[in-house]
Every structure is written in C-alpha cells, then in structure tokens.
Simulated scan of single mutants.
Amino acid sequence: MATVTLKGTPIETSGELPKVGTKAPDFTLTATDLSSKSLSDFAGNKLVLNIFPSVDTGTCAQSVRQFNQEASELKNTKVLCISHDLPFALNRFCGAEGLNNVISLSDYKEGTFGKSYGVNFITGPLEALHSRSVVVLDENGTVLYTEQVAETVNEPNYKAALEALYA
C-alpha cells in the first residue's frame, strides 16, 4: 500500500507500482471503440502508461494533452492514457480536443489493471479510481521508470518519464 495526498489529505492506494527492472503485469482494458486491449497488443513498442483518476478533471486532462503533444515526436513509442472513465468519455474528450497521438483505455469493466498495478485508491473521496501515476516500459514490457505523484492535484514529471525511454 502507498499513501499519497489529495489537497494535503492522505489517501491510500491498493498497493505499490511495479518495480523498475521487472516485467509489467499484463492487463486487459477497453479502448474507445469498445474493443479489448492487452499489454501484448503493444508488443515491440516502448510504452508510457499515463494513469489518472478522471479525464474530467483539469490536471488529468492536462496530462493527456501534454503526453499527446510529446508523443507526436516519439519513435516506436505509444502513450496509453488509462483511467476508470467510460470509453465514451475518453473518446469525447480526445475528439473535442483533437488529440490523436495517445491511446485512451478504460479499466471500468473489471478494475484489474488498477489492482495489479497497485494504483486503486482504497480510501478517500476518489476511492476506486486510479492514483496519478506514470509507468514507462521498454519494447519487451520491462519497467524502466515509475512515478506515483505524491499530491494528486499535481502533474507528473513528464521530462523524467520521457527521458527514461532513452536512458
């Protein structure tokens, strides 16, 4: 279990992020076209997992925008934006914003991604949503970098995440 804050108030998550150097846990998430996507669907690509509570909040929306901008310059890299939002909300947001360099995925069906990556909030007003985190994987699914943002209203360290891709 990890503890982060929401506007200074401690809240706990269901576990810890995967350790750097380990294989990332597999997942099955729902894409905006309602198809299922798993880690193996992205084999051979470097991945940035942008994990957040809800695209309908300012900080989460900004993280999707920022990673969308950064992703346009990345080679052999996919940015997966992952939350509990319904696929319809993710599709609406990206469509309205003209964001097409990220892949939005939802953990709404089973919530197994949040459990296996240790990011589900288990206390506080955001209980059952994901804590703001970034996990970077190499082409073989090995974890290169992780960040669980200590204060939920803050943005992740984009620079550190992207630098991990080429370290």
Rank of each mutant, 00 (worst) to 15 (best):
D33Q: 07
G114W: 14
P125S: 14
F121S: 05
E110R: 12
K115S: 13
V149D: 03
S104E: 03
F27Y: 07
V20F: 10
A128T: 15
S54N: 10
C94K: 12
N157E: 08
E147H: 06
E12F: 07
D85T: 10
S72H: 01
A24T: 11
L129D: 02
R92Y: 06
D33R: 10
L86R: 13
T28K: 13
L162F: 06
E70C: 05
V153K: 08
V48A: 07
K37D: 10
F93R: 06
A161T: 02
E155D: 12
F52G: 00
K115G: 03
D85I: 12
F113I: 09
N45G: 01
G58E: 02
N154C: 03
S106Q: 01
A43P: 01
R132A: 13
L49G: 06
K159A: 15
F67I: 08
T30A: 11
T32W: 09
G114D: 10
D56R: 09
A164M: 11
D33H: 11
I82A: 09
S131L: 02
F27H: 12
I122H: 07
T142C: 05
Y145T: 04
E151Y: 07
F52V: 02
L165N: 03
C60A: 13
L165R: 02
S133E: 07
N76E: 15
G118F: 06
T9I: 13
T59R: 04
E139W: 00
P25M: 12
S131R: 04
N68F: 04
G118C: 06
K78P: 09
A31R: 09
F27E: 04
S83R: 13
L39S: 11
S54I: 02
F113P: 01
H130F: 13
S36L: 14
L99C: 09
Y158D: 04
R132W: 00
Y117N: 02
V55A: 11
T32L: 05
A164K: 08
P10M: 11
L49C: 00
A161E: 13
P87L: 07
Y145W: 10
Q66W: 03
I122N: 06
L47M: 05
T146P: 08
F121W: 04
D56A: 13
F93D: 14
G8K: 05
L105T: 13
C81P: 01
T13R: 00
S63I: 01
N45P: 00
V135T: 04
N68M: 08
V153Q: 06
S131A: 15
D107S: 12
I51Y: 07
N154Q: 14
E16K: 13
A164N: 08
G95R: 09
S106M: 03
C60Y: 02
L49A: 04
N76L: 09
G15W: 01
F52C: 02
T152Y: 06
V136W: 05
Q62N: 12
P156V: 11
P18F: 09
P156G: 00
V48M: 04
D138F: 08
V48P: 03
K37L: 08
N100T: 15
E155P: 02
L144I: 02
T112Y: 05
F93K: 00
H130E: 12
K159M: 01
T9L: 08
G44D: 13
K115T: 14
N157D: 15
T112H: 12
G114N: 12
A167F: 05
V20T: 14
